[in-house]
């Protein structure tokens, strides 16, 4: 089955409207429907039929954030995904669950308002923000480490092959050599590859694309030593 995105959003919005909710916004690019009922704000995040595991996880996490902020959060899933993940977690954490198929839309789990004390909520949000900053930082460092490892691995391979070549030449200094073997040929260091390597190294140092007035500035060292 394939339901067009716009049609899907409209169907889910229409279903909730028929339950007495007032539609505030239909976001076709983000697959979100926002509604109100009395003073409560309802946010429905829709998972499309062809979504992967990552998309589903992302939608669920965002719904959890919606719930933590005092909104009534819903996830709308295609029927085929329900059989894989079940509805227990949604009931447990009071996140509403709507299931849709080609011809039907059903509310399986009602969304509820999660009441967290303000202090606790603020503390949680502070911690989350701190964790986010840490994760971002770790993520960028991990990328750099992965790049370095990949480069080191290539260098080791090239080094081994050079040693093999040296061994061959030392053993037979007077021999004329045919074209390198196919395997060796593909690993000959080309000048532009070196440049590429250098460029990558520079790029790593300038990964954040620092402006020119910051790079190689002697004041950076002097100022960073202030205590």
């Amino acid at each position: 089955m394939h339901i067009d995105r716009k049609e899907l959003v409209n169907r889910i919005a229409g279903y909730m409207a028929s339950q007495g909710y007032k539609i505030i916004e239909k976001d076709f690019s983000e697959n979100i429907v926002r509604l109100v009922n009395d003073s409560l704000e309802i946010v429905i995040r829709i998972v499309e039929e062809d979504s992967g595991r990552g998309d589903l996880l992302s939608v669920v996490i965002q719904s959890a954030f919606d719930a933590a902020m005092g909104k009534v959060a819903y996830v709308a899933l295609p029927l085929r995904l329900l059989s894989r993940i079940g509805d227990h977690a949604f009931r447990l954490h009071k996140i509403g669950l709507i299931v849709y198929s080609e011809d039907k839309v059903t509310e399986l789990v009602s969304g509820g308002v999660k009441i967290i004390s303000e202090t606790k909520a603020n503390t949680s949000i502070d911690k989350i923000e701190h964790l986010e900053a840490m994760i971002d930082s770790l993520s960028s460092r991990l990328e750099r480490v992965e790049e370095s490892l990949s480069t080191i691995s290539k260098i080791e391979d090239l080094s081994r092959r050079l040693e093999e070549l040296e061994y061959i030449i030392i053993k037979n200094p007077d021999a004329t050599y045919a074209k390198p073997s196919k395997g060796l040929e593909t690993h000959v260091i080309k000048t532009d590859s070196l440049q590429e390597f250098k460029g990558r190294k520079d790029k790593r140092h300038n990964k954040d694309k620092l402006p020119s007035f910051l790079t190689e500035n002697p004041w950076v060292e002097i100022l960073s030593e202030k205590t």
């Binding site: 402006p211 007035f213 910051l214 500035n217 004041w219 950076v220 060292e221 002097i222 100022l223 960073s224 202030k226 205590t227």
Partner: peptide
Amino acid sequence: IVYGYAIP
């Protein structure tokens, strides 16, 4: 910008 970047 440099100052803010460098000062601990």
